[in-house]
Amino acid sequence: MMDTSSARYDLEGAAQSALVRLATEYNQRAAGRIIHALQRRHASGVFGGDYEHKSLWDELCHDAQSGPHFDDQEPWDSILDALLQKEVERLTAAEFEALWLAALPDVDDLTTAPRDAGVIIEEFRSALLQRAGERSLERFEVW
Rank of each mutant, 00 (worst) to 15 (best):
A113W: 09
M1H: 03
E123T: 11
E25H: 04
L84Q: 09
D63Y: 00
A23R: 06
D106Q: 12
R131L: 14
H69E: 00
G133R: 13
G118I: 01
R135V: 15
G67K: 00
D106P: 03
R21T: 02
L129N: 14
D77R: 13
A43N: 01
S126N: 15
Q130P: 04
E89P: 01
G32R: 01
F124V: 07
Q130W: 14
A103Y: 07
S17M: 11
N27K: 12
E134C: 10
D72G: 03
L99D: 05
S66Q: 01
R125S: 15
E134L: 15
D10R: 10
V142L: 09
S78K: 13
T4N: 04
E122L: 07
E74W: 05
L11K: 12
D58E: 07
H62D: 00
A102C: 13
L101W: 11
A127F: 06
R125D: 05
R135P: 03
V107R: 07
L60I: 02
E52I: 08
F47D: 06
L91S: 05
G118P: 08
R8T: 11
I121P: 02
K54H: 14
G48Q: 02
H42V: 02
R135D: 10
L110F: 03
L99N: 12
H42S: 02
D10W: 14
S17R: 14
P114A: 07
L104C: 06
R125C: 10
A102W: 08
I79L: 14
C61I: 02
S6R: 06
F140Y: 13
D72I: 07
R135E: 15
E74H: 06
S78C: 11
K54D: 09
P75G: 07
W100L: 12
Q28T: 07
Q85H: 14
I35R: 08
V46L: 10
L128T: 10
W143R: 08
E52S: 11
S78E: 15
S5E: 11
D106S: 15
T112R: 05
I34L: 00
L101I: 11
D108G: 14
A127R: 11
F70P: 00
A64N: 00
R135N: 06
W143P: 02
E123F: 02
